[in-house]
Amino acid sequence: MHELGVVIKVVKTVENFAKKNGITKIDTLVLQIGEISSIIPKYIEACYPAAVDGTLLQDTKLKIELLPGNGRCHKCYKEFNLIQCRNQCPDCGSHDLEVLSGREFLIKEIIAC
Rank of each mutant, 00 (worst) to 15 (best):
L29W: 03
G71D: 02
I33H: 00
S37A: 11
D59H: 04
K75I: 14
Q58Y: 11
Y48T: 06
C47S: 07
A51C: 07
E35P: 02
L29H: 00
L56H: 09
L62W: 01
L57C: 08
K25W: 09
I40H: 03
K61I: 07
A46I: 08
A46S: 00
D59C: 06
E65I: 11
K25D: 12
L67G: 00
V52L: 03
K61N: 13
D27Q: 12
R72N: 06
Y77E: 12
A50N: 04
L66Q: 04
G69V: 12
A46N: 01
I44E: 00
G54I: 04
I40G: 01
K63G: 06
A51G: 08
D53W: 05
P41I: 08
K63W: 05
C73M: 12
K61D: 09
I36S: 03
H74T: 13
A51E: 02
K63Y: 05
L56N: 07
K25S: 14
L56G: 10
G71L: 14
D53I: 07
K25E: 14
N70E: 14
G71C: 08
Y77Q: 14
L57R: 00
I26F: 12
L67D: 05
C73D: 01
I39N: 03
G34W: 11
Y48D: 02
I44S: 04
L67Y: 05
E35H: 00
E45D: 04
L67E: 04
C73Q: 07
H74Y: 13
D53L: 02
C47L: 05
G71N: 06
S37K: 12
T24Q: 13
P49H: 08
S38K: 13
Y77A: 12
I36H: 04
V30Y: 12
P68S: 14
A46V: 04
L29E: 01
S37R: 09
A51H: 07
V30G: 03
C76Q: 07
E35C: 09
H74Q: 15
L62K: 03
C76L: 01
A50Q: 06
D27S: 13
I33G: 03
I40E: 10
L31A: 14
I33N: 01
V30L: 09
G54T: 03
L57Q: 03
I33W: 10
A51V: 06
G71F: 13
T55D: 05
T28R: 15
I33S: 04
T28P: 02
C73W: 15
V52N: 00
G34I: 08
I33T: 03
G71I: 12
L67T: 05
D59L: 03
